[in-house]
Design a protein around this nucleic acid. Sequence first.
DNA 1: GTCTATACCGTGATAGAC
DNA 2: GTCTATCACGGTATAGAC
Lengths: 227, 227
Amino acid sequence: MSPARKNPRVGRPPKESQDKSEKGENILNAAEELFALKGYDGVTLRAVATQANVDVALINYYFGSKNQLFDTVFARRAQILNQDRLIALKSAQEISAPQPADVEQIITAFLQPLKMAQESDDSGWKNYCALLAYVNNSAVWGPQLMGKHYNDLVDIFIEALREALPGTDDANLYWCYHYMSGAMSLTFANTGRIDKMSKGTCRSDDFKAAYDRMIPFIAAGFRQVCV
Amino acid sequence: MSPARKNPRVGRPPKESQDKSEKGENILNAAEELFALKGYDGVTLRAVATQANVDVALINYYFGSKNQLFDTVFARRAQILNQDRLIALKSAQEISAPQPADVEQIITAFLQPLKMAQESDDSGWKNYCALLAYVNNSAVWGPQLMGKHYNDLVDIFIEALREALPGTDDANLYWCYHYMSGAMSLTFANTGRIDKMSKGTCRSDDFKAAYDRMIPFIAAGFRQVCV
DNA sequence: GTCTATACCGTGATAGAC
DNA sequence: GTCTATCACGGTATAGAC
């Protein structure tokens, strides 16, 4: 059930599209890719239809309005991702019990499933990561969709961090989470800017390089601020 | 010459619009606000015209295509911002000479002008910060516009960081810069998500809270990774 | 030189015919 | 389930008023 484990469920919505045709899947995949690349307003339903090799009207038939399509695309992989993160967190907590899991372990549990998603053979996961970056940074979509699909998970991770860094103010924890979220988002966004900036020293698709450094970077930040 | 210093130059392009009418300014301000809020594709020239209280065709007359308008808006405040950052960096370097400036000082020089911009009475600066977040995270605009207007500055700051953290690989420096850039961007984006996430404990417009923690967070990350 | 009114023509989302 | 029609809106060009 994770991109890492190459489970066949990956790439499919858990239930609702189970009984929908292949064309419905094609529409979602095409929409995912295009929305990730150009944002909501930069994509036309006609472009989605063309890419999915279906008639424009079929999108309406299956998913309703453009807005609903966007929501469906965003929701599709959210649950899978969150489940993997929870499993990773639980596993880390069991290993370090009776001590609480430490900051590195918690952050790793949070990031690892995303790293796997970005490295996945299924390009849909790569697209979804970029979409996540878009939504997270959008003043229009961010509060609405991130809140709806990810806030429960955030609560659980914040609680874990609270135990790892006892005695600190909640404000510190939330702000540090916010910085982590921003650093992650820019990495997903995969804009290629670091390639130019570093004149080739770094490549934005070198996820190993990105994540290997991100985890200690963020963990050190948490420890510094959350005292 | 900085938003902090409330210099009258703020809000005006250095030269090219000096001789342009008030209406040209209105167009740029309206475009800045709308692009920041809804992105390039989410804004119509008609909406810009309405907000600026001018005729649609005037936009074309002054700025050419929509694409050129976007570029002009983005470029307008870039130079002012960079100049302030350079002054802050130079000043930090002079204070700590003959030692090189340390990581906190360098990051402060990088962030402080933006903090001032976001706190500025001139709402245009707030909008510009959000626009910067949008561009930085966009796969379409990021490499193009950020590269064009900010890469020179990045080189200078990377060099300062190289001196503060001698012996580390350039890849470490660039990746850490990337994480800083991401954390900053999400802060500018000002999506209001942290308000919901923290159930009111943090407010996304509490810039003091955001920046006071961001500087030690990032500095600790740099020190951890760049060894 | 500045600015407005308007027209062009392609494309948008969506609904209704088939 | 599919195709086509509808109707509003998009960016841009132009003609000419002030």
